[in-house]
Write a protein that binds this DNA or RNA. Structure first.
Lengths: 349, 349
DNA sequence: CGTGGAAATGCACACGTGTATAATAGTTTA
DNA sequence: TAAACTATTATACACGTGTGCATTTCCACG
């Protein structure tokens, strides 16, 4: 059993409230008494019980994190940023990964989070359903969603500007002289897929070019390494594209592998661009041209947004009038184009 | 303020202990009363307070995880395995990443973990110093260390068999006909570096070959992408090696990049092998021959080891005689050789 | 010398839950 | 019919911490 304030009180010959006050540097305890108590506490290796404290003070200083899969190459980097900001602000992280459990309507992972009375919630997952939102919303805690592609309009969300990024990538290909550019989207429809396609379409249109319907293909993002059926189909068209705009890096890498199997050289015979700049996009061969998402920065901004909400909700609790809740914020971050080796001018025919 | 048992009791016209018992399916409450109480609880959206419960029961069902960096390509996969097993067993994860904080002798990250009275601890970091061990050992909780390269002999540790793996890789190169094989270690000395070097040396010796001293080089693993000075030096030797055994995949990737800059073709002019099989070793060009560490499995086994300790320590607490603590276990996992594209027979001279 | 006040500390209670014990009602048995 | 039991629920207290309030001690001032 760990040491408690009572143990210290007994050893110091005082009452436990005095110990509690001394350890909180309350000016009402005599300096020498405080020193004595602190010395005994250190000597006994006293560490206060977070449970007892939070029960009394109604503060846990814990933030719940819901993540899909810890090793996800995108989110794990976002988590780095979140962790950095939150622990600097004195918050601890209560992590619930929920690979399969999320199919469960009453997820035990989420239940555990609510039981622990986290002060805020951070959702880093693309697949949080409406049912989970209601389960979480009941607790009415500050909530920030990082990079979620839910179609619902949720109050506090960090996006990155997919439309802009997709536009930049497409423009890059146009600048190289490509006129037959195809889009390989993912089959999970959502805000992201939609916006990336939109950015692609807009940019092509602005260049007074046309996108044939068969140049818009979809593929499952779950098996990025497998042969991409969509790319196969695209390359078998009478006039195959000379460049591919892929939904993300994982799919772009799958596309490059498929092209290699088809005997097509990248970028000479076909340019490929990805999206996200996941860490190993800098290791593939050829190095992938992509759009860098500021993942770490995204995590940091999301965490800061949560901190602001936490401050706000505490201020509101003390003032006890309710000035319309925290402002509905929604931040969109912009990354930048990274031109590497997987893009080149099209072959002259 | 969340709903409490008292709120439910009031609504149901009973006392709070009855509510508590009803929700725990205590047979002593009348079935209809229990049903009524449960209905009200569900209706009010009652979620018990983990703090209050653990204060009373002295159980938190939380495991503390100390990790270096969440996005680490090796550990994040280990974490997947840990998470899987622990949450299936009903434990939640309290995460403390500690990138920079670990230099702090009294790390606030560790302090938070101890305050929260986690039932067990899982250390997934290579850089946990002796000072931290004492800070943690004071709490005297079950502790499992996954893949730590501390030189100290710690009780519950999961290793992978580095000596074996390194031997397999070296033997593979010998089988291809290489006779000039160099080792590129990392400058952070520790069990891992030592064992991998040992496996390398043993295998060469068993083949009745000799390793010249200048074929053992060291490099910092912190900048794996930068030009590897060690590889540069090795290739400038009068008789440069025809194969490199690198400490891990990250360094192997750096080595390949360096060789490319030197105009040496991999694997024709120089074979390269890594260690770990981090996920993007399957994306680099050429695909890296490496030794697969069962990372996910390692996480699972580590978590299972912790669960066994937890059971054991609870049993001991109830029996109140102390049969010498949990058995000092230490498991070593064996991975397997993955032959891919970065190795080939040496050029005939 | 008595009184007012500041300084220092102890006492009592609260947070939300769980459990041992007491109390009540209802039922059976001698 | 009274006693002994069972079934059901209420009362009391504990976990470890923090805080309002009462209490004690001591010094200064009139």
């Amino acid at each position: 059993m760990p040491i408690t304030v009572k143990d210290i009180a007994q050893r110091a010959g005082v009452s436990h409230p005095t110990v509690s006050r001394a350890l909180h540097d309350d000016p009402r305890v005599a300096p020498q008494t405080a020193a004595h108590i602190k010395q005994i506490a250190a000597q006994l290796g006293y560490v206060p019980s977070a449970a007892a404290r939070s029960l009394k003070t109604n503060r846990t200083r814990v933030v719940g994190i819901i993540v899909n899969r810890i090793s996800d190459p995108f989110y794990s980097r976002v988590l780095d940023g979140i962790q950095e900001v939150l622990s600097a602000a004195g918050y601890s992280l209560f992590l619930s990964a929920a690979n399969t459990e999320f199919t469960d309507p009453d997820s035990s992972a989420i239940r555990a989070i609510v039981e622990h009375r986290v002060e805020g919630l951070m959702i880093c997952s693309m697949f949080v359903s409406a049912a989970h939102f209601t389960q979480l919303a009941g607790s009415n805690r500050p909530l920030v969603i990082a990079h979620n592609l839910s179609p619902e309009d949720t109050p506090h969300t960090i996006y990155h500007d997919d439309r802009y990024g997709s536009g930049q990538l497409t423009q890059h290909l146009l600048n190289l002289g490509h006129t037959r550019i195809a889009f390989v989207g993912n089959t999970h429809k959502g805000r992201e897929t939609r916006d990336r396609l939109k950015g692609f379409r807009e940019t092509i249109r602005r260049a007074r070019q046309h996108v044939p319907a068969e140049y818009i293909a979809y593929d499952s993002p779950d098996a990025p390494l497998a042969i991409s059926a969509a790319v196969r189909r695209l390359m078998q068209l009478p006039t195959p594209p000379t460049a591919l705009v892929c939904y993300n890096d994982a799919m772009a890498i799958g596309a490059m592998e498929t092209l290699r199997q088809l005997g097509k050289h990248v970028p000479r015979e076909c340019s490929v661009v990805g999206f996200d700049n996941i860490s190993f996009s800098a290791y593939v061969h050829p190095l992938l041209t992509t759009f860098d998402q500021p993942k770490y920065e995204l995590g940091r901004v999301a965490a800061q947004m949560l901190l602001r909400q936490l401050d706000h909700s505490r201020a509101r609790a003390s003032e006890d009038d309710e000035p319309n809740g925290a402002p509905r914020s929604s931040i969109t971050l912009r990354g930048q184009l990274l031109v590497r080796e997987s893009t080149a001018p099209p072959l002259k025919m």
